[in-house]
Simulated scan of single mutants.
Amino acid sequence: MPNVPAERRRVTLQRPGPLLVEGPVEVTLEDGTTVSSDRFCVALCTCRRSGIYPWCDTSHRRRAGADAARRTQPPPT
């Protein structure tokens, strides 16, 4: 895909959560490897907790739930 003019893609930011990108997409990782998906919309992990990184597997939900529970509990006595 590099150096090839492409039509505009829609990208949706969610906080907390993944980056939603209209597909198909090709993602270049930090180590230079490339992964691709032909799906009409993909969720890219932004928290790096995903077991299938760079794709989101909703691992961020478990952490967000744990953080919220910790904030609502009274402090230890």
Rank of each mutant, 00 (worst) to 15 (best):
C41Q: 14
G65P: 02
D57R: 01
V4S: 05
H60N: 08
A66V: 07
D38T: 08
S37G: 04
F40P: 06
A69C: 02
R39D: 14
P2I: 02
T58L: 03
P16F: 14
V27H: 00
W55P: 02
R48M: 10
E30C: 03
S37R: 07
P74E: 07
A68Q: 12
V21M: 03
G32D: 06
R15T: 15
W55I: 13
R8W: 06
S59H: 15
E7H: 11
C47W: 11
E26Q: 14
L19R: 09
E30A: 12
D57A: 00
T12P: 00
P76G: 06
D31Q: 06
P2E: 03
C56H: 01
Y53F: 14
P75N: 15
G65C: 04
R62E: 11
Q73D: 14
P75E: 15
D38I: 03
C41S: 11
S59D: 14
Q14L: 12
P74M: 04
R61Y: 09
P24R: 00
G65L: 08
V42A: 03
R39F: 11
Q14G: 07
Y53E: 05
T33K: 10
S36W: 07
R10A: 06
G17C: 05
N3M: 01
T33R: 11
T12H: 01
R61E: 12
C45K: 09
R48F: 07
R63W: 15
A66W: 05
A68D: 12
A64W: 13
E26V: 10
A69D: 12
R49P: 06
L13D: 08
S50T: 03
R15G: 12
V25Q: 00
R8S: 09
P5T: 02
P76E: 10
L44T: 02
A6F: 08
R63D: 14
P75D: 14
R10W: 06
C56R: 01
M1P: 07
R63L: 15
V35Q: 01
G32R: 05
Q14P: 04
R63A: 15
L19T: 04
P2W: 02
T34G: 05
T12V: 07
R48A: 08
G32M: 08
A69L: 12
N3L: 06
D31N: 12
T33V: 12
A6Q: 13
V11K: 00
T58M: 05
L19W: 02
A69K: 11
R63G: 13
W55C: 13
A43D: 07
G65F: 04
V27R: 10
T34S: 10
V27L: 13
A66I: 07
F40W: 05
C47F: 08
R63K: 15
S59W: 13
R39M: 11
E26P: 04
R49G: 12
D38F: 02
V27Q: 00
R63N: 13
P16Q: 01
L44P: 02
L29F: 10
G65N: 09
Q73K: 15
L44E: 01
L44Q: 01
C45L: 08
R48N: 08
T77P: 10
P24S: 03
L29S: 01
A6I: 10
T28A: 08
L19E: 04
S36T: 12
T72C: 13
Y53V: 06
G65S: 06
Q14Y: 09
S50E: 03
D31C: 00
C45A: 09
P54G: 08
P16H: 15
L44K: 02
Q73H: 13
C41T: 13
A43T: 05
